[in-house]
Computed example of a mutant assay.
Amino acid sequence: MRALFLLWALPLGLFWGWYFLSLNDLSFGYIMFSRQLHDLVFQIYGEILGVDPALIPGMVARACVFDSLIVLAILAFRRRRVIAGWIRAAHARWAGRSAHEAGPELPAE
C-alpha cells in the first residue's frame, strides 16, 4: 500500500511542483522551470491532443482528482473493517452523548 501511495503521490507532486514553478517563471537558473518551456510544453501537448493549450491544466487537474478518488476508494476498501468499527464507535458515542445532553428525565405524573 505504501508503494501504491508513493507511486501515486510522487508523480503528482513532481508535476504540480514543476507546473507552478514554471507558470510563475521561478526558474532558479534552470531552463526546465522557465515560462518559455512551460508554454512550449503545453503548446506541443495542445497540438498533439488537438485542444487549446490553456485547457490542458484543467484536464490534468480533473484527471488527478479522479485518480485520487480511485486510490482513496482502494484504500477505504482495504481498510473497510477498521473504518466500519470507527463509524460504529462514533455512532455509539454520539447516541450516548445525545441521551446525556437531553438531561434527566422528568418523573411521570
Results as ranks from 00 to 15, higher is better:
residue 57 P to H: 07
residue 100 H to E: 15
residue 34 S to F: 12
residue 51 V to N: 08
residue 90 A to Q: 08
residue 43 Q to H: 14
residue 39 D to T: 14
residue 95 A to Q: 07
residue 88 R to D: 09
residue 19 Y to G: 05
residue 94 W to A: 13
residue 32 M to R: 06
residue 90 A to G: 12
residue 56 I to N: 05
residue 46 G to N: 07
residue 96 G to K: 02
residue 45 Y to F: 12
residue 12 L to K: 06
residue 92 A to Y: 06
residue 38 H to L: 09
residue 18 W to N: 08
residue 73 A to G: 10
residue 2 R to H: 10
residue 98 S to Y: 14
residue 72 L to R: 00
residue 100 H to L: 11
residue 60 V to D: 02
residue 32 M to Q: 12
residue 109 E to N: 10
residue 72 L to F: 02
residue 47 E to W: 14
residue 58 G to T: 01
residue 74 I to G: 02
residue 66 F to I: 07
residue 29 G to Y: 13
residue 82 V to E: 15
residue 97 R to E: 15
residue 50 G to H: 07
residue 36 Q to N: 12
residue 74 I to A: 09
residue 39 D to G: 14
residue 69 L to Q: 05
residue 52 D to H: 06
residue 87 I to T: 02
residue 93 R to N: 12
residue 44 I to F: 11
residue 101 E to Y: 14
residue 102 A to D: 07
residue 86 W to K: 08
residue 105 E to L: 01
residue 34 S to M: 11
residue 1 M to A: 11
residue 4 L to N: 02
residue 103 G to S: 00
residue 78 R to L: 06
residue 9 A to D: 13
residue 83 I to G: 03
residue 99 A to R: 06
residue 108 A to H: 12
residue 15 F to V: 06
residue 96 G to A: 15
residue 15 F to Q: 02
residue 75 L to E: 15
residue 102 A to V: 04
residue 57 P to G: 05
residue 22 S to R: 01
residue 17 G to N: 07
residue 9 A to K: 04
residue 84 A to N: 04
residue 36 Q to T: 15
residue 24 N to R: 12
residue 94 W to S: 08
residue 20 F to N: 01
residue 74 I to W: 01
residue 34 S to P: 03
residue 53 P to D: 00
residue 23 L to G: 06
residue 8 W to E: 14
residue 97 R to T: 09
residue 101 E to C: 08
residue 84 A to G: 05
residue 22 S to F: 07
residue 10 L to I: 13
residue 77 F to R: 07
residue 83 I to N: 02
residue 67 D to N: 08
residue 29 G to T: 13
residue 54 A to V: 14
residue 1 M to Q: 13
residue 79 R to S: 10
residue 107 P to D: 00
residue 86 W to G: 04
residue 52 D to A: 15
residue 82 V to D: 11
residue 14 L to I: 14
residue 34 S to L: 13
residue 53 P to C: 00
residue 29 G to K: 09
residue 99 A to N: 03
residue 65 V to Q: 00
residue 23 L to M: 05
residue 22 S to L: 08
residue 4 L to I: 14
residue 6 L to G: 10
residue 87 I to R: 02
